[in-house]
């Protein structure tokens, strides 16, 4: 290493300082731009404000908690209106629905934004489909560490959610740096100026590559000498933890399997976890009168579907709230 010292004493330290300053400037700019990167980031940065409003709102306070299924599938104003009318109590509905999230994110998000501020709703409604609750869901470490973890639970998250050193480093860096944590969004935002076809073509290529990977897995399975092994049963450690959090803070939890164009199967192990935790399952998979036309894209509810689902939920919740009183 001695050999390097002399040239470092030359002008290279100036180069390094200039680059370091530029990186700091970029980090500051990224933090300033973060809330406006996309609608999801805007929503995430509004959490403190939304939760603050909830804290000061009239009871009962209902938290609609989940992802894009509830974001597009639930009309919070309509729900508040219907509940207020049905229960004769002024209800407040808050929607925390960052897109593409699942049970792992919801766990850390709740700890960070609700438990740490000691703000809890009376009722939480979680909308989901089959892949949102098992433990084997995709780990989106950058966003999880950057937006849903606090310094208090970050280490626990890095330790519990991955055994991979690289992923832990990614998580730690994402938590510390907006450039790193929001890298994909910064990338997408800026490349678009130069390559307007970016989003559309990236999706297409991702689909082709996923198909290729799936074909490779099938071929490998076919040529493997040992018989194909059955997939291991799903586990629900994260779900149990989330329910325990709600229970600890006296929050009544309602898990709502969301409607889809085709009726989907509930995993009995998941149902058992919900029941054992003392939460309630509100089966909305097949709402009377709902058709395929009520979905906007084959997955999310459209305008008409949102109304039907919200009214269905309001009716169930009103009965539940009435019973509790």
């Amino acid at each position: 290493m001695n050999s390097s010292i002399s040239s470092f004493r030359g002008s290279e330290w100036k180069v390094l300082v200039a680059v370091a300053l530029a990186v700091v400037a970029l980090e500051i700019a990224s933090r300033m731009m973060a809330p406006s990167l996309d609608s999801d980031r805007t929503h995430i940065h509004a959490f403190p404000e939304l939760i603050g409003e909830m804290k000061n709102a009239d009871h009962p306070r209902v938290l609609a908690y989940g992802n894009s299924l509830l974001k597009f599938g639930l009309d919070e104003d309509l729900l508040a209106e219907e509940l207020t009318e049905a229960t004769a109590a002024l209800c407040h509905v808050t929607k925390i629905t960052p897109v593409g999230t699942a049970v792992r994110d919801w766990n850390y998000l709740y700890e960070t934004y609700f438990t740490r501020t000691d703000t809890h709703p009376e009722v939480v409604v979680i909308g989901f489909v089959a892949h949102h609750l098992p433990d084997d869901g995709e780990l989106k470490m950058r966003r999880l560490a950057r937006h849903f973890c606090s310094s208090a639970n970050l280490w626990n998250c890095l330790r519990e959610e991955t055994a991979d050193f690289d992923t832990r480093v990614v998580g730690a860096l994402s938590h510390l740096s907006a450039i790193y944590g929001d890298q994909y969004e910064l990338q997408w935002g800026s490349v678009h100026w130069f390559v307007p076809e970016y989003t559309q073509e990236v999706r297409k290529i991702n689909r082709w590559l996923d198909d290729q990977d799936a074909r490779a897995v099938r071929t490998k399975a076919k040529t493997a000498k040992s018989p194909p092994q059955e997939a291991p049963p799903k586990t629900y450690r994260q779900l149990a933890h989330l329910i325990a959090q709600f229970k600890e803070h006296g929050v009544r939890a309602y898990f709502v399997p969301m409607p889809q164009p085709e009726i989907w199967k509930l995993d009995p192990a998941m149902v058992e976890t919900v029941n054992q935790g003392g939460a309630t399952m509100v089966d909305a998979r097949a709402i009377a009168g709902m058709t395929k036309e009520d979905f906007s894209d084959g997955y999310h509810l459209g305008k008409s579907g949102t109304k039907k689902f919200t009214r269905f939920l309001a009716k169930v919740l009103a009965a539940e709230l009435g019973d509790q009183e």
């Binding site: 002008s11 290279e12 100036k14 180069v15 200039a18 680059v19 530029a22 990186v23 970029l26 450039i179 790193y180 890298q183 994909y184 910064l186 990338q187 800026s190 490349v191 990236v202 991702n206 590559l209």
Partner: peptide, 23 residues
């Protein structure tokens, strides 16, 4: 001159930080 080098490295570091590949 070091200023040109710093500018070039800043560009490279910016690209490295923001444009890491999707896969």
């Amino acid at each position: 001159r070091w200023g040109w080098r710093a500018a070039a490295y800043t560009y490279a570091v910016y690209m490295l930080l923001i444009y890491q590949p999707l896969r």
